[in-house]
């Protein structure tokens, strides 16, 4: 198993994808922290929409540091998809399974590797966002690291990025065409889920389902606020429940993907 994991890491770091992604993750982390930081600390906004703004310095810091997390998890989602999608696309899956014919072991190695890669990009993203965000917060007279829960949020954002990579792994297997898998997954995360959330806001029972949607669970895990369509904060799970929900998504997707891979004929 450790040999298969080493092989997966070598696969990932021997194409140009990894450093292109690293640059994208770093820049988006820094850019969104800057934008969110400037908006949330602007005096113009403070009077108008006070209800939707973070109330404490700790909440403010969390919102700023995780401002780019939505882009970040879409990128690790894409990495997860490509981890398996490019193997099918370039037919390298054949040599992968020839080297490790126990396919469950291959998938296990991919899961471990993706968690590591997710955390790796998480660190890069945080370096960007904390660097940029702390500068903005300090300049505007807010405390950059006022509360211990900030550190929990930062640590959990590494986990979140790893889990989204696993969701991508499953999607990459279940949707055989890599390009289609990328478009569909990102479309679901960015378009279908917000629409679903809006629709669910109408019936009374909808509010019991909304917190379990993947991006809502992500916000809950990170302890950041997510605004509903009317600008009012929606009900959220606690951070650990959010993390469990996200883990469940990751487990189901990666599990389905593994189940399918183990049975497929590779021709």
């Amino acid at each position: 198993m450790s040999a298969a994991i080493r092989s997966e890491f070598r696969k990932f770091f021997t194409t140009r994808l990894w450093w292109g992604m690293a640059i994208a993750v770093f820049l988006s982390g820094a850019a969104f922290a800057t934008i969110v930081g400037l908006i949330f600390t602007s005096n113009a906004l403070a009077g108008q929409a006070a209800g939707a703004l973070p109330r404490t310095d700790a909440d403010l810091a969390k919102a700023v540091y995780t401002g780019g997390i939505q882009i970040g998890y879409l990128l690790t989602l894409a990495i997860g998809i490509m981890m398996i999608g490019s193997e099918y696309r370039h037919k390298t899956i054949t040599s992968t399974f020839l080297a490790t014919p126990r396919r469950g072991r291959v998938m296990g190695a991919k899961v471990v590797t993706l968690l590591g890669i997710g955390a790796f990009y998480g660190v890069i993203s945080l370096v960007g966002s904390v660097l940029a965000g702390a500068i903005i917060l300090t300049l505007r007279g807010h405390s950059a690291f006022g509360d211990a829960s900030i550190w929990r949020t930062l640590a959990l954002s590494l986990l979140v990025l790893g889990l989204w990579a696993l969701i991508g792994l499953g999607a990459g297997i279940l949707i055989p065409n890599q390009v289609a898998a990328l478009l569909i997954s990102i479309g679901v995360a960015w378009i279908v889920e917000p629409i679903l959330a809006a629709v669910l806001a109408i019936p009374a029972w909808g509010e019991h389902i909304t917190p379990y949607l993947p991006s809502q669970a992500t916000s809950a895990t990170l302890g950041t606020m997510s605004a509903g369509i009317n600008g009012q904060p929606v009900g959220q799970l606690s951070w650990w429940a959010g993390a469990l929900v996200l883990m469940a998504y990751a487990a189901v997707m990666a599990g389905l993907g593994t189940w399918r891979t183990v049975r497929a004929d590779i021709s």
């Binding site: 092989s7 037919k91 390298t92």
Partner: peptide
């Protein structure tokens, strides 16, 4: 040892790295 198709390579990976990926598993 087997070679099934001459197309089983990631176009962005070098020959050496392709073999290194396998070498990691083969020990």
């Amino acid at each position: 040892g087997s070679a099934l198709e001459a197309t089983n390579f990631h176009p962005g990976r070098t020959a050496r790295d392709h073999l290194r990926v396998l070498a990691a598993v083969a020990g």
